[in-house]
Design a protein around this nucleic acid. Structure first.
Lengths: 115, 115
DNA sequence: TTCCTCTACCTCCTAATGCGAGGTAGATCC
DNA sequence: GGATCTACCTCGCATTAGGAGGTAGAGGAA
């Protein structure tokens, strides 16, 4: 009954934040998004395809992302995603939530003695 | 189909960390644990009973917590929990995981420009 | 040609878990 | 008796990360 790693549970809910974050700096296609997240997190996160693609589709359905297919000269077609205004607002919301959440954890873990 | 708040998803996986943290400073019973978490988080977290009690039972089953029933002079019996050595180790693990995770998010969200 | 590999997309299923709703009981007060 | 508060508990739903498996194009090797 190995528990499925603490990390996996902590990750829940952060995928939209991470995806929107890397797309803030320009359009990318799926694989690239995963790579960027891996790079920028310093290797801490490596989203699996099974979680990344569904998340992208959900964000697109929500209107947070816009996407189109493009040919590649060296492989299959790619689906490029870019962030919309709505996505920008959602990103801000996610950032705020994350900040408040992380602050809450820090405060709780921090000290036994706090008023 | 309102999405169930970002916060609810972020919370996943943090309950053991929060519970073990407040118990590090002394034994408490269920309701008290919830109150302490609420206080210490500055109101950011207010674990529901539906998530708190199952989490306590799981931690106890894992050997991270030890518990016993005691009478109260002003209400129903209470179940007091205290942290074991194993629980201390688990807490350390959760703290480390959290720290690394939060660092990863911070790094990713931080800057478009990082090597 | 045929085969293998790499890129790039996708979906199904399982496991974990927070939460709301609902339920049991003791104690106190009107 | 009835209401209310404390304190415990469980059930079922919804969300979501991940692994496994599947499709398909392009390029190189045998």
């Amino acid at each position: 009954m190995r528990r499925p790693s603490i990390r996996t549970q902590l990750l829940k809910g952060t995928t939209p934040l991470l995806v929107l974050t890397v797309l803030r700096d320009g359009e990318l296609y799926g694989y690239e998004i995963a790579q960027r997240i891996r790079e920028r997190s310093g290797g801490a996160f490596a989203p699996s395809e099974g979680s990344l693609y569904p998340a992208l589709h959900a964000l697109e359905a929500e209107g947070a992302l816009q996407a189109d297919w493009r040919e590649s000269d060296k492989g299959p077609k790619r689906r490029y995603y870019r962030i919309t205004d709505k996505g920008g607002a959602l990103l801000a919301e996610h950032e705020a939530e994350w900040a408040s959440f992380a602050r809450g954890v820090a405060r709780t873990v921090a000290g036994p003695t706090n008023a």
